[in-house]
Amino acid sequence: MLTIKNLHAEIDGKPILKGIDLQVNAGETHAVMGPNGSGKSTLAHVLSGREGYTPTEGEVIFEGKNLLEMEPEERAREGVFLAFQYPIEIPGVSNTNLLKEGLNEIRKHRGEPELSAGDFLKLVREKAKLVEMKKELLNRSVNEGFSGGEKKRNEIFQLAVLDPKLALLDETDSGLDIDALRVVAKGVNAVRNEKNAFLLVTHYQRLLNYIVPDFVHVLADGTIVKSGGKELALELEERGYEWISEKAESA
């Protein structure tokens, strides 16, 4: 589904990613871990096309297409979804209105007809239930006045409705207490299937107790220094990131 080859990227002329190689297939969940400043959030932003995160070398092929050439909205319509670390508030725009516009754009792109108002509402209700999203939040302005936990849950709810092929979760666990984390993880697990793939960007191992990854990659100073199975995360938890960084330096 996603092939990243020797990806370099910079912010304001400062190199952050220095040669990332990664292969993600449908049905897989990958966790990208690493210390602060290692470039893991940058990776998520480069993949989603955020302005200011400039790829300088390498390529990213998504479903056979050159992802880096696309505008952010084209990537979204092709099926790339970013769950934001800090979800944005949009006053006066209701959650359902945003989702309706977004979903219809995505459907149009796929050559599918727009959903009728009735079918859309049915879908929204169903997905809200799936991720335990409070009904009263559906018609509120996007993220406005939401608690930290509600914002993160809203990202997962949007993910469930838009049903992307590739979901990038940027530090979805940050700022969540254990109960909120459990609900968010439950939502993600409910959405996981054979056809989609997840890339979780996280600093801590605890999220991975609830969303169990197939692969774990450790990022340090802009490159993947170690990859492994879910047990790698536990090892990191025990030994800290310095263990990896030292290993990388000595190698």
């Binding site: 505008e71 909205e73 979800p87 006053p91 725009v93 209105n97 977004g102 979903l103 792109h109």
Partner: peptide
């Protein structure tokens, strides 16, 4: 944020302004 949900720039701006 809105582009990431599939909206193009004009639609995004119009949605923000309408809101």
């Amino acid at each position: 944020y809105l582009k990431q949900r599939g909206l193009d720039e004009e639609n995004a701006v119009s949605m923000i302004v309408n809101g």
